[in-house]
């Protein structure tokens, strides 16, 4: 099978997810070539053909133009599968490509079982096998689902690609995450609040538990969106990625985006009333309990240790 991997580049850097695409192609035993709108000064370590468009000319986010550049490469390469990361870049560009190719697009693939792509359903509570009815397919891979077992090596054969397609959207620049606040990546213990805390006042009990363990408190996305906690305490793909010695997830169901931000924690404790919550998949210990009862009791006992 022949695959075309769509690598990503942002703000002068090649994104690490590029190597997840390479790992995926290796895992399914496919040939690959790669497409990138980026810069020749930052090439991926990759043995194969790299179709490179210049991001200083075509922009880092410019869907109509990237679409045409990529379609031209697909016409030359004739891949059976076009592979994206399921990222803000990938889920924006992939549907445009699948429609133009009249190909099935299978989103957020977490694994291939006997050649069949598998994707999560309902916040990862369920999974589904997806059957494509088209010969050519587009897949986008969940962040972190595929990884290289060793450091990437090689240098690509670069083929430059050009287009004169007009943009539809104007890119005006990046806005960095709010600076300052808490660097959760350095915390050894993190106690994190999810939607299950129920009301903003309960952040205080999460903070108290964090303190009793000598750590920081954090929050999942719904808690931050509700403005119960600051964005600089958010753990997950759109917040911080953390790897503490202990992560205590309180009332967090375990959406994929949250798990991606904390699954490298050394030891995970989950407190949840739902025994089947996906957080249980990554938890070393799942306490099936109402956090509003358990957390204050636990904090008190820790304080007198």
């Amino acid at each position: 099978m022949k695959t075309l991997l769509v690598a990503e580049y942002r703000d002068g850097k090649l994104l690490g997810s590029t190597y997840e695409l390479v790992a995926f192609a290796q895992k399914i035993g496919a040939e690959s070539s790669m497409f990138l709108v980026g810069s020749e000064t930052v090439l991926p370590q990759y043995d194969g053909t790299l179709y490179l468009a210049d991001s200083s000319k075509y922009g880092e986010f410019n869907p109509a133009v990237h679409k045409q550049l990529l379609l031209d490469v697909i016409a030359r390469e004739q891949p059976e599968m076009v592979v994206f990361s399921h990222s803000s870049y990938g889920w924006d560009l992939a549907p445009r490509i699948s429609l133009a190719l009249n190909a099935a697009h299978i989103s957020e693939v977490v694994e291939f079982v006997d050649g069949v792509p598998v994707a999560p359903v309902c916040n990862a509570k369920l999974r589904r096998e997806v059957k494509a009815n088209t010969v050519q397919t587009v897949v986008s891979l969940q962040a972190g689902a595929f990884g290289l077992s060793s450091d990437p090596v090689g240098s690509p054969r670069v083929e430059r690609v050009e287009t004169d397609t007009a943009p539809q959207i104007e890119f005006e620049g990046y806005e960095e995450a709010e600076a300052g606040g808490v660097d959760l990546s350095k915390a050894e213990v993190i106690v994190s609040a999810g939607r299950g805390i129920g009301k903003p006042e309960n952040i205080a009990m999460i903070e108290a538990l964090a303190k009793s363990l000598g750590g920081e408190y954090a929050a999942s996305r719904p808690v931050v969106d509700s403005e119960w906690a600051e964005h600089n305490r958010q753990v997950g793909t759109t917040g911080q990625t953390v790897s503490p010695k202990l992560y205590v997830a309180c009332g967090i169901s375990g959406a994929i985006q949250h798990l991606a931000g904390m699954k490298k924690s050394e030891f995970v404790v989950a407190i949840n009333t739902d025994k089947d919550a996906p957080i249980g998949e990554v938890a070393d210990v799942l306490l099936v309990a109402d956090l509003k009862q358990l957390v204050p009791v636990l904090t008190e006992k820790l304080q007198i240790l």
Partner: peptide, 8 residues
């Protein structure tokens, strides 16, 4: 990703 936003 990572809290960055793009203005468009």
């Amino acid at each position: 990703e990572g809290g960055v936003k793009a203005r468009v």
